[in-house]
Computed example of a mutant assay.
Amino acid sequence: MGPGSPEGLLLGVALDALLGDPRRGHPVAAFGRAASALERRLHGDSRVRGMVFTAVLVGGAAGLGVVAEKAARGRLARAAVTAAATWAVLGGTSLGREGRHMARLLEGGDLAAARRRLSHLCARDPDGMDEKALARATVESVAENTSDAAVAPLLWGAVAGVPGLLAYRAVNTLDAMVGYRDPRYVRFGWASARLDDAANWLPARLTGLLTVACAAPSGRARQAWRALRRDGAAHPSPNAGRCEAAFAGALGVRLGGVNVYGGRVEERPELGDGRAPETADIRRAVRLSRAVTLAAVAVAAAVAAGRRRA
């Protein structure tokens, strides 16, 4: 696998900004259906079965990327293939739309609709959540998914081209499908969850650093850096905490607290020193996410161009 096409990455980002995710026929949805079909055949309370499941699907996605790149002869064709793959795997525009939609619902006082909509961003139980709890959940989801939906795929696309783009999205999708700690997936989903941790290790830390840089215009770079260094490792996820802590410092809010997943209560450590997030902070988080994504685009294009010259 060679480096990605910088022109293709830039064009793919532009397509995502203009079009967002397709409403029908999304390639990631098709991959999810294939994964569900394979899970029905392979599922068992076994790490080995889960490893086979993960290897087949991630390997298949990477192999498809290799075939697509080899079929694209010439720089223009490779840029076009990279652009299509980048558009297919990016989710930054849709993430921003979801965040703004949640903000509108909360601004309008429609808590019932906001609770129903929360599932588009995260897997928390929304029952009984008030406006501030919904605002915190949304800000945390925007922060974490800035890495998953934008920074990570761009970085993998820069380093490993179309195979890297498709393989990363496969890994991230499988983690969302089976990477839970409930009895059904605690062993079967182990490989998918651990592979997702590994694939996001560097992108999450890059997201934290880019967040610090993007906080400079608001004068909060020092606070973002302090929160990132002090609180980033406190989160139970090896990666999400870096993104959330940096966002907390950059926005001047305090994230973390009690979350409920499928009836299971988790007490998350506090990240940042500020006040509890409010509805207005959602739009601020979306703007910060967009700035971080644009910074990641520049980094990814530079990495891809440098690798191509090497």
Rank of each mutant, 00 (worst) to 15 (best):
D197A: 03
A298G: 14
F53N: 01
D45V: 10
A150I: 02
L255R: 14
G161D: 12
G99M: 03
R78E: 03
G157H: 09
A245V: 06
A30Q: 08
L15T: 09
G179F: 05
D127R: 15
M177P: 11
E266A: 15
R75W: 05
M129N: 07
L251T: 02
D273I: 00
Y185E: 11
A291P: 00
C243W: 00
C214K: 12
R220C: 01
W225K: 07
Y180T: 04
L106K: 03
N145P: 11
M177F: 05
L38E: 06
L57I: 08
S147P: 00
G252I: 04
A80H: 12
R264H: 13
V81T: 09
P153I: 07
A158Q: 06
R73C: 09
T293I: 00
F53Q: 02
G164F: 04
L10E: 13
V48I: 13
G91T: 08
D148K: 04
P277V: 08
P236F: 13
L174Y: 07
R254S: 15
L121K: 05
P126K: 13
S237C: 08
S237Y: 10
V56R: 02
G2T: 05
R229S: 10
N259C: 09
A158S: 11
F31M: 10
A305D: 02
T86K: 03
T207G: 03
R308S: 14
A199E: 03
V159P: 03
P269M: 04
G60C: 11
V186T: 14
V151H: 08
Y168E: 02
P163M: 11
D182Q: 03
F31Q: 00
S5E: 12
I282E: 06
T93D: 02
R78C: 01
R47H: 09
R136E: 15
L165D: 02
A77C: 11
G63M: 10
Y168C: 07
A276W: 04
G20I: 07
T138P: 04
R75N: 00
E267R: 15
A246C: 06
R49Q: 14
G256P: 01
G262E: 10
R220P: 01
R104F: 05
L64Y: 01
S141I: 12
T279V: 15
P217F: 11
R78T: 06
Y185T: 05
H235S: 06
V48A: 15
G63T: 08
A233E: 12
A68F: 02
A72H: 09
L90A: 07
A167E: 09
V67G: 05
D197K: 04
R115P: 00
A83F: 05
V66Y: 05
R73Y: 00
L288W: 02
G263L: 06
R268I: 07
T146G: 11
G249C: 10
N172I: 12
A30R: 15
A246G: 03
A158N: 10
D273F: 01
L202K: 10
D281C: 08
L11G: 00
A113M: 05
A135Q: 14
V253I: 13
A240T: 05
G179S: 12
R254E: 15
L271K: 08
G92A: 14
Q223D: 15
S141F: 08
A88F: 06
G252E: 03
G189L: 09
R124F: 02
A150T: 14
G60S: 14
G232V: 05
A37V: 04
S94H: 01
